[in-house]
Design a protein around this nucleic acid. Sequence first.
DNA 1: GTCTATAGTTAGATAGAC
DNA 2: GTCTATCTAACTATAGAC
Lengths: 201, 201
Amino acid sequence: MPPSAKAKITKADKTRARLIEVATRLFQEHGSGEVTVRRIAAAAKIEAGSIYYHFASRDEIMRAVLESGVGGAHEEVMQAIAKAGPDCSPLERFRAALSAHFKYTLRRHFSSRMKEIRRLPKRLRDHHMKQEREYAAVFAGLLKEAQRKGLLRPGFDLPVVRMLAIGALTWAAEWYDPAGAKSPDDVADELMRVLTGGIAR
Amino acid sequence: MPPSAKAKITKADKTRARLIEVATRLFQEHGSGEVTVRRIAAAAKIEAGSIYYHFASRDEIMRAVLESGVGGAHEEVMQAIAKAGPDCSPLERFRAALSAHFKYTLRRHFSSRMKEIRRLPKRLRDHHMKQEREYAAVFAGLLKEAQRKGLLRPGFDLPVVRMLAIGALTWAAEWYDPAGAKSPDDVADELMRVLTGGIAR
DNA sequence: GTCTATAGTTAGATAGAC
DNA sequence: GTCTATCTAACTATAGAC
């Protein structure tokens, strides 16, 4: 099914997309293990049995949520980097990437922290982990570029720094209050300020 | 049940403690929603029915795990701060607190990120959130002290900085590999270096 | 494509023996 | 205190009507 020119969007495509969307949100809000097929169906306004026209099993929903989630984040982060432009500093682009990651996580209610991944058949689990590595490589590449250009102080373990930074935002999606005074960009900016300059005098 | 002088440790106390310990680990490893009472029992080497001699319900196990988890972390963090001594810089004590938080999280396999908290009866949920706030206040107090003493650059939102920092470590407990080259202290130190001085030139 | 009805399984929880 | 046996409810998944 190549999504080329003539890809017509059927009713099934729409329902399937809606199911993935509500499942993503429910998994994130209540924890993947807590969410039943019945609840997903109810949230998508169809009956439980109808789910199985679109997905072969609950695990298959899970898989679709993960693929769509990581894939979507990857895409938006790449776009944000492209928008920042190839001429601006790698740290500027890193900031744009972090911000896009955070905003996507908040908007789509997606986080790849679902523990149930372990329960997936090895084939699907490997595919997900590959997708995650490719996504992480985007951030890693920007930090390496910054290092090459001499923008960083020496002595940091960049993979660790990268994971700490992304982790801070992944976790921020848990406590961030959209009704509060701060915008998602404010949070991403604050992280970037801490990250680049530090808080101490 | 005041745990005063004559607090004799019964067999029940030991079994209960073991149940909390294995439940904490299972909740963290597989996600709280995925873990059944039967699995907790199996991991603690007793039969499923016997659990109900120690806990009235699955939610009650959950509650005990949360209380013991946050309580234990609070205690160890306070000890680490005390050990650092009241004379050292508040940022030094903050570092000690972060490190203790991380090490506790890793050792006890505890993280308070269980989504199932929402499902708990309001009374228990409120109690948990109060405990969490008290715990967070320890870290907040150290940052405020640093600010008062003029150790910080101006313009930071300290609650946000605090949550980003703790979040980075909470998430680090997910990806940290005990078999790897880095010790938990290495990770906490790296975070503290980034936090205080920043990575950029 | 979505529904209703239901089979088959497994979960949380209880009762009573030991 | 712990076990075995079991109840009831809820879950995943299927079948067949529309």
